[in-house]
């Protein structure tokens, strides 16, 4: 690496990759591995402190021994496994083909612009998943229909709240409240054999699965701080879900 401008560009690129991985829902060990791979291609030494909202990174140029330290704030998290997969693949191809800085930059730019599934596909898939949960917890096909409709409306509310940039926990509370209110109608009018099952499963799509799994993965790999942060995020989310359910059950005075 010859000049300091290119060195700054390298630092920005590594920060960008780390940011993308963190907000897409990769665990800390995976992020560290990716940084390590890209660093060795670019002939630099990287040490970093990665957190939910901030990354601090110090890079040392192996040839000139110059160092640079940068701090970056992260945008909102939005799970995206396609990004994780593509960055992982890019890191391997880059190692094998010995990519230059610009080639890596172009690939990351491409990955950033990859699309998501259309909203309607997500709506149907998630509602079907909830219907599936209802079946697993011994609901019949009428209960599954109630669960499907509840989840569908709740996800619509959640997407709308997301568009209006509501606080994440407020959004989850609103979604949970909507799902439970709709599913409570099933209990009130006694639809199907197990209407309570539809009520209990209609909100399961909100459960913070990735946060909770990554939390324990991080704890297992001694990334204690990130593990705790993720567990607290997961707990807060569950609290928001349960509060929505509690309010709906209180309104319809449903006692289990």
């Amino acid at each position: 690496m010859s000049n300091s401008e290119e060195f700054t560009k390298t630092a920005d690129l590594l920060l960008e990759i780390t940011t993308l991985l963190m907000i897409s829902g990769a665990n800390t060990e995976r992020i560290n591995l990716s940084i390590e791979r890209f660093s060795s291609i670019l002939n630099i030494d990287t040490h970093s402190w990665i957190n939910q909202k901030t990354i601090i990174m110090t890079l040392t140029d192996k040839s000139s021994q110059k160092t640079i330290t940068k701090v970056q704030n992260l945008p909102h998290h939005a799970l995206n496994f396609l990004t994780i997969s593509e960055i992982s693949k890019a890191s391997w191809t880059a190692t094998h083909e010995n990519w230059s800085l610009d080639e890596i930059k172009a690939e990351i730019e491409r990955i950033k612009n990859l699309g998501r599934y259309p909203k309607i596909v997500v709506l149907v898939a998630v509602s079907l998943a909830v219907a599936g949960f209802c079946n697993i917890f011994k609901g019949d096909y009428l209960n599954m229909l109630v669960a499907f409709i509840s989840a569908f409306i709740a996800l619509l509310v959640s997407q709308q709240a997301h568009k209006l940039k509501y606080n994440m926990y407020v959004r989850i509370f609103l979604a949970s409240l909507t799902a439970s209110l709709v599913a409570s109608l099933g209990v009130v009018f006694n639809i199907g054999t197990n209407p309570e099952t539809a009520l209990a499963t209609s909100i399961l799509f909100l459960v913070p699965g990735v946060a909770l799994i990554n939390s324990f993965t991080d704890l297992l790999e001694s990334n204690i701080l990130n593990g705790i942060v993720r567990f607290v995020v997961g707990t807060m989310t569950v609290l928001a879900i349960a509060t929505g359910l509690f309010v709906a059950m209180y309104i319809f005075s449903i006692n289990k």
């Binding site: 995206n80 496994f81 998943a129 697993i136 799509f205």
Partner: peptide
């Protein structure tokens, strides 16, 4: 079967390849 559908639904939210 429904476990598979549930896994798939979550996969779609996570934007899997």
């Amino acid at each position: 079967f429904w476990s598979g559908i549930a896994a798939l639904g979550f996969g779609i939210i996570f934007n899997v390849p």
